[in-house]
Simulated scan of single mutants.
Amino acid sequence: MAKKTSFTIPTRRGFLAGGAAAIGAPALGQASDPSAIDPETAAVLYPDPEPEPAVPRNISSFRSKQWQPYFSSLRNGAILVDTQSRALHYWGEGESSYRLYPSSVPLTEEMTRRGRTSVIQKVEGPGWAPTPSMKKRNPEWPDYIPPGPNNPLGTHALYLGWKYYRIHGTHDTRKIGRKSSNGCIGLYNEHISELFGMAKVGTQVLLI
């Protein structure tokens, strides 16, 4: 599993500040220990991740990137999700900050969407409902899970311009660094909390 840290990288404008997409709701305490989740719900939503073959480039590719090959400007900030290295990069407007976070990515190529979109809503304490396709594949899943430690979206979510797609937290930390989602991008709760505070409605997003 990727080390539970993020990184702050200097740029040519000097050292950067700091270390390492819906409806508003109160902030929730972070529960990173899956044992704190209701066992019955956890067994349905958080099954043990399937073993994966080694990903030789996963560690070596988890490194900083420059924004210029991917964005024409940093207006409103920019988020790059690299599904191959399973990492999310964030640049603040005017290169005011840079963050690099380990992430989960979709289970299959069919569930993976790539291209450009943007953050259209920010939700603290999100509720979750399976999409029609998720419900078809998993009819045993509940129709709705309210905010809390059983919620697959963790403590915060950034809603994207693509319907049903989000960058969100997770209470099941085993998912990070793995092919483990139904299409969304997952982060540790402490990382999505930090990103949530920096990103804004209108932040550019690119998935590659």
Rank of each mutant, 00 (worst) to 15 (best):
A2Y: 08
S6W: 03
T8K: 10
I9P: 06
I9Y: 13
R12E: 13
G14P: 04
G14H: 09
F15Y: 11
A25Y: 12
P26C: 03
A31E: 14
D33Y: 13
D33I: 09
I37F: 09
D38C: 13
D38K: 03
P39A: 12
E40N: 14
P47N: 03
P47Q: 01
D48Q: 12
D48A: 15
E50H: 05
P51K: 05
E52K: 08
A54Q: 04
N58Y: 00
I59N: 11
S61A: 15
S64Q: 06
Q68P: 07
Q68H: 13
Y70W: 10
S72Q: 15
S73C: 12
L74M: 05
N76Q: 02
I79R: 04
I79V: 14
L80E: 10
A87S: 15
L88E: 01
L88N: 06
L88R: 09
H89Q: 00
Y90G: 01
Y90Q: 06
Y98Q: 09
S103M: 01
S103I: 01
T108P: 02
E109M: 10
E109A: 15
R114Y: 12
R114M: 13
R116I: 06
T117E: 06
T117D: 08
V119Q: 01
V119M: 00
Q121A: 08
V123C: 03
G125W: 14
G125Y: 13
G125A: 12
P126G: 02
P126R: 06
A129W: 04
M134R: 05
K135E: 07
E140H: 01
W141T: 12
W141E: 05
P146S: 13
P146W: 12
P147D: 03
N151Y: 04
P152L: 12
L158Q: 08
L158A: 14
L158C: 06
L160K: 04
G161P: 04
Y165N: 10
R166Y: 04
G169N: 13
G169M: 07
T170I: 02
H171V: 00
T173K: 12
K175M: 11
K175L: 05
G177A: 11
R178M: 09
R178Q: 15
S181N: 06
S181L: 07
N182Q: 14
I185C: 07
G186E: 06
N189C: 06
I192C: 02
S193E: 10
S193R: 12
E194L: 03
G197E: 08
G202F: 10
V205K: 00
L207I: 15
